[in-house]
Simulated assay, not measured.
Amino acid sequence: MQNLNFTEITRQKRDFLPLLLLADDGEHLENYLESGSLFLLSNREKTPIAVALVAYKQAGIYEIENFAVSTHFQKSDYGRKMMQFLLEYYQEKIKATEIVLGTDDVSGNVQFYEKCGFTITHKIPNYFIEHYENPIFEGKSQLKDKIYLRRKLR
């Protein structure tokens, strides 16, 4: 895992839509793609490995709106490295006090975020049923509830 590059993408964010769409559908992504800060993790060959889209919420609080690791690189510790970069960046450079995010209740993402130091704050029952036109499945399980987590940085 040597020679990893963490880059903030400020132009041509749509070039990363295939990777971003692994974590959200296009309609919801359109709501925050241009206004959020997009970060890319790539390797020495400049192959995109992971992306994260972070939006300002309120004084000191930022939300990870999208966090995706390329299918080829999942389960290889790249997600943890990307998250570590984001947490350090927002704590040291931005001076954020807290990072929040929302995820589904089925995919195992909650456990990943908890390992990264996030704690569950609340749940919105039936979020994915009420806010998405078509049912979303992870394997054979339908996504229903949205789980919100946060990580204090200060």
Rank of each mutant, 00 (worst) to 15 (best):
P48K: 11
Q58T: 09
A50V: 01
N66I: 03
K46I: 00
R44Y: 04
Q58S: 14
E65Q: 15
F39T: 07
S76E: 14
N66K: 01
N43L: 04
R44M: 06
S37T: 07
N43K: 12
F73A: 10
L38G: 05
D77W: 13
F73R: 14
V51M: 08
P48L: 02
F67H: 11
H72I: 07
L38P: 08
A59T: 09
V69P: 13
S76G: 12
T71E: 15
K46C: 00
V54F: 01
S70P: 12
N66E: 07
A52K: 02
A55E: 14
Y78N: 14
V51T: 13
K46L: 02
L40V: 12
E45R: 13
F67W: 03
S37K: 12
G60Y: 01
K57M: 07
V51L: 04
G60I: 01
S42K: 13
A59C: 05
A68L: 02
V69Y: 06
V51P: 05
H72K: 13
Q74S: 10
F39S: 05
L41C: 08
I64S: 04
S76T: 14
E45I: 00
E63A: 15
Q58A: 03
P48I: 04
G60F: 00
L38R: 05
Y56Q: 08
K46F: 04
I64K: 03
L40M: 08
K57W: 00
S42A: 04
S37P: 04
S37Q: 10
S42G: 05
T71I: 11
A68T: 05
F39Y: 13
F73M: 10
L40G: 11
E45A: 13
L41H: 08
Y62D: 04
K75V: 13
Q58M: 05
S76F: 11
Q58I: 01
L40H: 09
V51R: 02
I64H: 03
T71P: 06
Y62H: 13
E63S: 10
A55M: 02
F67Q: 09
V69R: 10
E65S: 07
P48E: 02
Y56H: 13
S76P: 09
K46H: 10
D77N: 15
K46N: 13
A55S: 14
S42T: 09
I64P: 06
F73N: 13
K57N: 06
K57L: 07
K57T: 09
R44A: 12
K46A: 08
L41G: 08
L38S: 08
E45L: 12
A50Y: 09
P48N: 04
D77H: 15
H72S: 12
S76H: 15
T47M: 02
S76D: 13
A52F: 00
K75I: 11
Q74C: 11
A50K: 05
F67R: 07
E45S: 12
F39K: 00
L38C: 02
E63K: 12
S37C: 05
V69A: 07
S70V: 08
Y62L: 02
A68G: 10
L41W: 04
K75Y: 12
Y56C: 00
L40I: 12
L41I: 08
G60C: 02
T47P: 03
I61M: 05
H72C: 10
A52R: 06
T47A: 02
Q58N: 06
Y56G: 04
L41T: 07
